[in-house]
Amino acid sequence: MIETDTLDPAIAAFITSHLSMQLAATDDAGLATAVRCVGCRVSADRRRVTLLMPRSQALPVLAGIAANGRVAVVFNEPESYRTLQLKGRDARVEAALPEDAAALLPYAAGFARNLAGLQVPEPYVRTLVSCAPDDLVAVSFTPTEAYGQTPGPRAGRRLAPGEMET
């Protein structure tokens, strides 16, 4: 449990390094659903994480968040397989900021660079994370739990405050 109010700087740096990201929400009937994200930012005080996604692909996710605020996000660095999951209970749907739309292309370029070592063609990555600026929507939350999910027997272990998997 991250008892401290702020996100560890190493985690903040990791999750904003143009990773592969998917966000999950649940409806009140207990069905989880998910969407691929196309951007991530952390507030200046590192208390709040905001994920960006195409609204048109996220409708059930946004409905779940509006209903109960529960959210889980997985961050994966493809080349190193380092994987982290953050969870929160106070998520809300927000309008994307102009700077979020401006960050779409740098995110796609950075994600493509992260995948270049695995021979994933850049047009593929750009298509996968493409989003029309007027389709962009944001979900922000206060992370209260962090789990290391790098594949292997230690996957799923809850991280202690300030701990970052290597």
Binding site: Q22, V71, Q149
Partner: peptide, 8 residues
């Protein structure tokens, strides 16, 4: 507990 979990 109603919390989502997501993994690759």
């Amino acid at each position: 507990d109603g919390m989502p979990n997501i993994t690759y």
